[in-house]
Amino acid sequence: MPLDAAKALAAEPHSREIAWTPKDVLLYHLGIGAGRPATDPRELRYTLESRLHVLPSFATVAGAGAPGVIEALSVPGVDVDLARVLHAGQSLRLHRPVPPEGRAAVTSRLTAAYDKGTAALLVLRTDAADADGPLWTEEARVFVRGEGGWSGDPGPTHRPTPPGEPSDAPSDAPTDSSSYRTVELPVREEQALLYRLSGDLNPLHADPAFARAAGFDRPVLHGLCTYGMTLKAVVDTLLDGDVTRVRSYDARFAGVAYPGETLRVRMRRERAGAAAPPGADVPVRVEVTAVERGDAPVLTETVVGCG
């Protein structure tokens, strides 16, 4: 069997050193659509090294190493066809703001393998730390079609509340109408080609023949590109452009986006309740859809934890 869940979960953690420079950050920001309009002061904080603010989702590509999807497939016990693989979701927890330049030790290991019947869901955890301590923790959830059915644990089924629906927040943590926003983000035709230069060279995002073999009409946008675009929209729209207010970010990739489409980002910020401890995260709940395909889901179950 190509997937040996027991062997994969027993594998030793993989450690490596990574480094990044402001040039890497600038390239990432351009890859997720920053710089429009090019002279807008709000965009220059993402595109000019002299005033550079690092969007926290840069952590997913820092060091230009293999993205979580590819790294999960490199674990002993995992030998599957890349064309059967989809990025199912991503979570990120920031321990400190990501610096514009740095070096870090990164350790990754498979922490879960769930049996979804017709597919497997793999969870890869990555921890990064520098000389001053922990920087971030991220989890990549990887969906492998055709690799389920071994009678394993099906995994959790909890689904966070999307925007516009009642949440499970306590009654003293309400929302208000001023915290609801909708923005539309155009995806450039060449955006996947630019974003892949930050490290994810999966041909699904560039090669039409490979995309067709994987079941798509044409190359799709990287899920992590949509992930970064969405976080930027939340920071710019609800957090006054302050990247340091982002504490955590979790999203499920419910569908694909294509270059040339328009993404509709709906977001809702909750207010901290009276019973919340000082410094507690305040959630922003988000959903992203593709406008030209009748608001087809792209990101769901998405929450940004803010300070």
Rank of each mutant, 00 (worst) to 15 (best):
L197A: 10
A5K: 02
D132F: 13
A72V: 07
A173T: 05
R125Q: 12
S198F: 13
T111E: 15
A129Y: 05
R285S: 05
G199N: 13
T39I: 15
R188T: 13
G148P: 09
P166E: 14
T47W: 08
E17G: 01
G255A: 02
P162Y: 11
P67E: 13
V142G: 06
A19T: 06
Y46D: 03
E189Q: 12
T237H: 02
L86G: 05
L27F: 09
R252C: 01
L82N: 00
P100W: 10
L110H: 04
E292P: 03
K23H: 15
A112Y: 10
T118C: 12
Y195C: 09
D4C: 04
T300D: 14
P160H: 15
P154I: 01
L124C: 00
T289W: 08
A276T: 03
P163C: 14
L194T: 01
R181I: 09
K232E: 04
R269S: 05
R245T: 00
T107E: 14
A104I: 08
P134Y: 09
T161E: 14
V144I: 12
V234F: 11
V220K: 12
L231K: 04
A173Y: 13
D127P: 00
L193Y: 11
V25W: 03
G294R: 02
A169K: 14
E270G: 13
P76D: 07
T262Y: 06
G117T: 01
V75M: 13
E12M: 12
E17M: 09
A275F: 02
R96G: 05
W20A: 00
Q90D: 03
L224Q: 12
E189K: 11
R84F: 08
T182I: 12
E139P: 06
V69C: 12
H53R: 10
L122K: 00
R93K: 10
T289Q: 12
W20T: 00
A274Q: 06
R109V: 08
K116S: 02
C306E: 06
A66G: 07
E17C: 11
L121I: 08
A59E: 06
V286Y: 01
Y28N: 00
P259H: 05
Q90C: 07
R247S: 10
A83M: 06
T161A: 15
R188D: 15
R269N: 08
G305P: 03
Y46G: 07
L197P: 07
E292N: 05
P203S: 08
T244Q: 13
P162V: 13
D127C: 05
A6H: 09
T157D: 15
P56D: 01
V61A: 09
L221N: 09
P37F: 15
G89N: 04
A211N: 09
L197C: 07
T289N: 06
H53M: 13
G102F: 00
S248F: 02
M229V: 08
G260Q: 06
P186H: 12
G63A: 06
V235M: 11
Y114E: 10
T244K: 11
R271N: 03
E165A: 15
L94T: 05
G155W: 10
I32G: 10
D242A: 06
D130N: 01
P208G: 10
G155I: 12
V291S: 04
P283A: 03
A131T: 01
A254Y: 07
D127N: 01
D200P: 11
H158F: 15
G305F: 04
P154H: 11
T118A: 15
G89W: 10
A251I: 01
